[in-house]
Design a protein around this nucleic acid. Structure first.
Length: 300
DNA sequence: AATCCGTGGAG
DNA sequence: TCTCCAAGGAT
């Protein structure tokens, strides 16, 4: 994907939304959850897995999950331990728990069918503003503005002449809706097309403007591509954090075939206070359970 | 509203 | 090596 051909920029009369949809037709990645006929449950699984996790890491796990749990009803019968293990090392394993809880809710409240309405989707565990609209649009083909970090970045540059996206805000939805084509099917495709543009061309690091189909109408470029001038953004650290410790603890329990005594968890982190705090938080989160004899395990 | 929640590839 | 960051959500 490093050598996308420079596309024509489109006649200046074409609305940018139409141009982006046309670009998508030739540039889109062939991702399995985009195959025609992919059902809303499969889309929901992909969207939750893709939260803060790169496409390449999601693909194989997504295939395994859909083969094993092809419907919400199937997943609703799985245990937390099963889904935590199947989640593997995608990261943020609470997502696995919530996806299972969402499957239970869909089975109980929606007759086993993933709903199409944003309001109902947002009521599901682990489903927020972005994921609800993504499932409604990509899974049910509803006309729906969908805003993720890619879309916010594209709009920041293309419309607002800003180098980077500001934090999410409610107006993001109306910003992108204003650019969507009138035709229903093209509007649906537009939602995924803008995300793809942000993922492949209008990227966070150094944008590939020569490959951009709307480069000649990008407000940021027209302004001379000014550098980011907002407040400094903090990048989350990892080494030494509770996240790292929790990850190591869970790693041991995922690999264990039986409950393990506390001593087996000692080697993963020297600081006993932090280790204990993290184990407690995993228990609170429902990612770890304790047996009657005090050993630790993934919850059944 | 700011912070927390994993992991690993890329530059 | 080290920094950045990848289809967010919950609190």
């Amino acid at each position: 994907m490093s050598t996308l051909p420079a596309p024509p920029t489109g006649s200046s009369g074409d609305p940018v939304g139409e141009v982006i949809v046309d670009w998508y037709a030739g540039a889109a990645r062939d991702l399995p959850w985009r195959a025609p006929g992919t059902d809303p449950w499969a889309v929901l699984v992909s969207e939750v897995m893709l939260q803060q996790t790169p496409v390449a890491r999601v693909e194989p796990v997504w295939r395994e999950w859909l083969a094993r749990w092809p419907t919400p009803a199937a997943m609703a019968q799985a245990s937390p331990a099963e889904v935590i293990r199947a989640w593997g090392k995608l990261g943020y394993p609470r997502r696995a728990l919530r996806l299972r809880e969402a499957a239970v809710a869909v089975t109980e409240r929606h007759g086993g069918l993933v709903p199409a309405e944003v309001e109902e989707l947002e009521a599901l565990p682990g489903v927020g503003t972005y994921t609800a609209r993504a499932v409604s649009c990509f899974g049910h083909h509803r006309r729906q503005p969908v805003v993720d970090t890619n879309v916010r970045r594209v709009v920041a540059r293309l419309v607002h002449a800003q180098a980077e996206a500001a934090p999410a805000r409610a107006a993001d939805l109306t910003d992108i809706a204003a650019l969507a084509p009138e035709d229903h099917d093209r509007a649906v495709r537009f939602s995924v097309a803008v995300m793809e543009l942000g993922a492949l061309v209008c990227v966070a690091g150094t944008p590939r403007c020569p490959a951009c189909p709307v480069r000649d109408r990008c407000a940021w470029r027209l302004a001379g591509s000014p550098a980011y001038d907002g407040p400094p953004r903090r990048v989350q650290g990892f080494a030494g954090t509770d996240r790292q410790v929790r990850g190591r603890l869970l790693d041991v329990l995922r690999a264990a075939s039986e409950p393990v005594p506390a001593e087996a968890l000692t080697p993963v982190w020297d600081d006993a206070v932090q280790r204990s705090r993290c184990l407690d938080s995993l228990l609170v989160d429902g990612l770890v359970a304790q047996t009657e004899d005090g050993r630790f395990t993934l919850p059944d």
